[in-house]
Write a protein that binds this DNA or RNA. Sequence first.
DNA 1: CATGCTACCAAGCAAGCGCTTGCTTGACAA
DNA 2: TTGTCAAGCAAGCGCTTGCTTGGTAGCATG
Lengths: 198, 198
Amino acid sequence: MAASRRPLAPDEPNRRAEIVRAASRLFAEKGYAGTTIRDIARAVDMQSGSPFYHFKTKHDMLLAVVLEGMATITRAVGAAAARAGTPREVFEAMLLAHLDQLLAEDGRHFAATLLHESHHLEAAARAVLIEQKDAYEALWQKALRELKRSGEIDDDSRVTRLLLMGALNWTVQWYRPNGGRTVKQIARQISGMLLKSR
Amino acid sequence: MAASRRPLAPDEPNRRAEIVRAASRLFAEKGYAGTTIRDIARAVDMQSGSPFYHFKTKHDMLLAVVLEGMATITRAVGAAAARAGTPREVFEAMLLAHLDQLLAEDGRHFAATLLHESHHLEAAARAVLIEQKDAYEALWQKALRELKRSGEIDDDSRVTRLLLMGALNWTVQWYRPNGGRTVKQIARQISGMLLKSR
DNA sequence: CATGCTACCAAGCAAGCGCTTGCTTGACAA
DNA sequence: TTGTCAAGCAAGCGCTTGCTTGGTAGCATG
C-alpha cells in the first residue's frame, strides 16, 4: 500500500524543492485545478497535510512553479543572447535555448505549467509574473531588431515576435523526444523559415 | 439572490444548446476541472442537477463542446480551401477563416476549449476527436503542398505545418479585439512571413 | 540533561463536488 | 377529462477538496 520510502541522505536539504518539482509535473499533466494536494503529497511520499508546512496555500505552490520556470528560461535564453556572434548566430542560439527549456526532460514541466496554468494565479501573483515576462520578451524584441538591422527579416514588430513565440511554444503540444526530429533540427527549420539570407 | 429569469419564448427549442454554449465559455475561462456543474447550471439559470437531464456526465458536456468547435472550424476552413483561386489566395483565405474561428466573438470559447482542455477527455472520446483533427490537418497539408508546387514555400513538411499551427493557435493568448490589429492584418502578416513571392 | 527548533505525521473539519432521486409542471393528445 | 411526456425542480447522498490542528521524533545547542 505505502510507496517505498526512499532513503533520505542525512544532510539532504529540506524538501521544499522536491515538492515544487513534483507539483510542476502534476500541474503540467493534469492541470492546476485537476491536481490535488493529496496527489502532490503522494508524489513526494508525505502525508496530505505536510506540504502546508512549506507553502501557505496551493496557489503559492503554483506561483513557485511558474516563477522557477520563468527564471530558468530567462537565464538560459539570456545567456544565449549575451554571447558574441552575428545577429543570426545569436538568434539561433536563443531559439535552441528556448526550445531546450520547453522540451528537454528536466524543466519541461515547469515550462508547460508556465504556459498553460498561469491564469489560475490571483491578480497580485500574476502581476509579479508579468513583470518577469516583459523582461524576457524584451530579449527577443532586441534580437529581432538586430536581425532587421542586418537585413535578415523585413518586419521586427510586436506581432512578428508573438507569432514566433506561438510557433515555438506550440511545440510543447506535438514534440515527442523520439519523434525523428531533434530540438536542433527544429530550431534550424524555424530560422530557415523566417530569415531571408542563407 | 436569484438571477433574473429571462422569459422563455413558448416555442424555444430545448436548452441543450444553451448549456453547451455556457459550458464552452466557462471551460475556456476557468478550465474544465476548474468549472463546476453548479457554475454551468447557474449560467443558464437552472438548478444544479438539471443539466444531467441533457448530459449523462460532465465529460459528455466537454465532448459536446470540443466536437462542436472542431466541426465549426473544419466547416469554415474547408469552405475556404474549396474556393477557386491561386494557391496563395486559397492559403490566405484559410488563414483568415482559421483565425476568425479562434478570435471572433461567437465560437472563440469553443476553439479555446478545443485547444486547451481536450486532454481531459477519456481515451474513447479522444479517439473520436483525433479522427476529426486528422481530417482538418489534411486540409492544411494539402494547401502547403500546392504552395510548394507553385514555388512560394521551400518546405511543406509536417513540421512546417505544426509550426504554422502554433503561430496561429497562439494568437488566442495575446489577441485582443481592440488591440490595433485586425484579424485580416494578422493573416496578411503571416502569409508575408512565410511566402516568398509578393 | 534540558530546551528549542525543524520537519514532519495522524486525524479530521467545513465546504464543495459530481451525480441521483422522487416529484412537479405545463403543453399537447385522445 | 384524463393520460402522457419533455423538461425541469428540490433535496440530498457519498465522497473529495484545501487546509488546520495537536502532537512528536530527531537533531543542535547550552
